[in-house]
Computed example of a mutant assay.
Amino acid sequence: MIPEKRSISIMKELSIEHTKQMLMIDGADIKNPILLFLHGGPGTSQIGYARHYQKELEEHFTVVHWDQRGSGLSYSKRIPHHSMTISQLVNDAIQITEWLLSRFSKTKIYLAGHSWGSLIALHVLQQRPDLFYAYYGISQVVNPRHEESASYQYIRNISGRKRASLRSPLIRFIGAPPWKKDIQHLIYRLCVELSRGGLTHHHQQSLAILFQMLTGQEYGIRNIPKFLNGLRFSKKHLTEELYRFNAFASVPSINVPCYFMSGRYDLIVPSEISKQYYQALEAPEKHWFQFENSAHTPHIEEPSLFASTLSSHALHHL
């Protein structure tokens, strides 16, 4: 039995370059290694529901979630628009890592990046590999334009075989990417969800996430407007830079062990693109894991398997 005083469950606000940024830190034993989680988006923070899915993970790690600059509880109207760049978010992540190392008297931590967060993570690892034991890339973003094209083609093919499906007229209406109008992107994401390849493979899990955000103490109804404002703000200022990203060209190598995790049904970041990057990447050690019952969020959809996968491979701190 771990003494109660060695467990931790706190919300911590840090001041980083004139902005207030929120961390949520949970773990069964502060002597465990630290796992910093970079959420997706841009702007899709996880603090509002993450605790419901990480109890097993907390037995092995002190898990740190961060609402990125301009997202969720870190959103503010006073954030300078010019600071909303990938470069600044990378700098923020490095400063948070250094604070964690100091606060918990560690020499290195583990890093996980989900979707958009995996893009930020690659740049962090490229700049400061010395801070990390290993990296977990979940639904790894590689080239958003290629990922959308692959997903669009898949949805069009399956819709063509099911003429009665609502997806068929919708996907034909918007045409092939790239899309310039917001309505085209909205219809595409609707088609992804209808194809059960979106946030979760089973729609009831997405509803559960919404319920947890609305009723949980971390966000609750009172903070949903802040979450939505942060989502709009982040997408407005970061989406253009997101679509210019190409990991093959910008991050061909990483000097830490890498573990990539993909949901079988993911149509937001199809595994075929992520796996091509995994195969081409130069790293001292690398592994690929496919989650057979997940779409875009295997850490949420299959939390027990996610926790056991990480704990069985996170041996670099020993």
Rank of each mutant, 00 (worst) to 15 (best):
Q276N: 15
R167Q: 08
L101I: 04
V251D: 03
S304D: 01
H185T: 05
I254L: 14
I96P: 10
K286N: 15
N32T: 01
A307M: 08
L166F: 12
S195L: 07
F233K: 15
I138P: 08
K20W: 00
Y53C: 13
T44S: 12
I138R: 10
F173H: 13
N293L: 14
P169G: 13
G70Y: 04
R167H: 06
Q217G: 14
I34A: 14
M213K: 15
I30D: 06
Q184I: 05
A164G: 11
L267K: 15
K180D: 03
H52W: 03
Y152F: 15
P284Q: 06
S9Q: 15
E282T: 08
I183Q: 00
P42D: 02
F211T: 06
I155C: 09
P42L: 04
P42S: 03
Q184F: 05
P284E: 14
R167I: 11
H65D: 03
N255P: 10
E98T: 02
W179R: 02
F61E: 08
I187T: 15
H237C: 08
S234V: 01
Q184G: 08
W116V: 13
W288K: 10
H82K: 08
C258V: 15
R167P: 01
P284G: 07
V124E: 09
Q140Y: 00
S168Y: 03
H201K: 11
E301T: 06
L101P: 08
R232Y: 11
I171G: 02
A164Y: 10
F173Y: 12
A28N: 11
K275V: 12
P33Q: 13
M24S: 09
I273H: 13
S165I: 06
V90Q: 00
V141E: 02
S151L: 07
I254N: 09
V256H: 08
L231A: 14
R232P: 06
V63N: 02
K106N: 09
A93Y: 05
A247I: 13
N229M: 10
L281W: 04
C258N: 05
G197W: 05
M24A: 07
G197A: 06
A314L: 00
Q95S: 08
F173L: 11
Q212T: 04
S115C: 01
R196P: 00
T97F: 03
N32P: 05
T107I: 07
N157W: 09
G137M: 06
L281I: 08
E282R: 13
F245I: 08
A134K: 07
V124L: 12
H65K: 00
N246S: 06
A134C: 07
M1F: 06
Y154G: 08
S195C: 03
Y265E: 12
P270Q: 14
G160F: 12
T85C: 04
E240T: 10
E148P: 03
M261R: 10
L281A: 05
